[in-house]
């Protein structure tokens, strides 16, 4: 799994690629936490190159969304989500809890 973060004017972009497995998911959590601790709560997660996401990765997503949405100060938007990954999000009932965007530019521009 690789994680790259980039700060934009109105949001932060995290690009995660590969397998977000139970071993690597904490590193994705670290990327979210670094942004949140800096006081920024609008985050786009580029998942276009994610192979699969495990329950540990799903916990990271839900935890970040809970923190960002608190007091309506922001949100996590999921962009470029591959079909199999989306199916897992649906399977665990997470799909209604996130805004989805097909492409990264639209997601970043939505803030």
């Amino acid at each position: 799994m690789n994680v790259i973060t980039k700060q934009h004017k109105h949001c932060d972009l995290i690009k995660v690629s590969g397998r977000v497995d139970n071993a690597s998911a904490p590193r994705l959590g670290d990327a979210f936490n670094a942004i949140i601790e800096a006081g920024r709560f609008n985050i786009v997660l580029d998942m276009s190159e994610v192979e699969y996401i495990s329950s540990a990765g799903l916990r990271v997503l839900i935890d970040a969304q809970k923190t960002c949405k608190r007091w309506n100060r922001g949100e996590v938007v999921l962009a470029g989500v591959p079909r199999p990954v989306y199916e897992v999000l649906e399977l665990v009932g997470f799909a209604p809890l996130f805004r989805f965007s097909e492409d990264i530019t639209t997601a970043v521009g939505s803030f």
């Binding site: 397998r19 497995d21 139970n22 699969y52 996401i53 495990s54 329950s55 540990a56």
Partner: peptide
Amino acid sequence: QLAVDEACA
């Protein structure tokens, strides 16, 4: 892959 990941975890 995902099922085995969860099982091993």
